[in-house]
């Protein structure tokens, strides 16, 4: 398996990372060595083995439908980089 510069550029876009052309080559090389290393797992025969859904063998962990105290608006907005009186403000992204 080998990733191209384009693959890495696409992943960077999806992760909202801005990558310079030099970085792109570096990261493509580094990512390829990681992916190649993990690719050793492909050598294992997984015929008839169920895919693992979760690393812990625990099922059905629920809580009761009980309502608790919400955060105050001031607390909720405390870390907002930008805000107005009632909400978080973000650069407009249209649907």
């Amino acid at each position: 398996m080998s990733l191209s510069n384009d693959d890495v550029a696409k992943v960077a876009l999806l992760a909202r990372l801005r990558v310079s052309p030099e970085e792109l080559s570096t990261f493509t090389g580094q990512l390829n060595s990681i992916v190649d290393y993990v690719a050793h797992l492909q050598e294992v025969d997984t015929e008839g083995v169920e895919p693992l859904a979760h690393g812990v063998e625990v099922r059905n962990v629920f809580r009761d439908d009980a309502r608790g105290e919400p955060l105050s608006r001031e607390d909720a907005l405390a870390n907002a980089p930008k805000r107005n009186a009632t909400g978080f403000l973000v650069p407009a992204v249209l649907d």
Binding site: N84, P91, A92
Partner: peptide, 14 residues
């Protein structure tokens, strides 16, 4: 929910 139209910004209500 996002409400648009705060001068190039959108308000987020969670």
């Amino acid at each position: 929910k996002l409400t648009h139209g705060y001068g190039g910004l959108s308000e987020v209500d969670l």
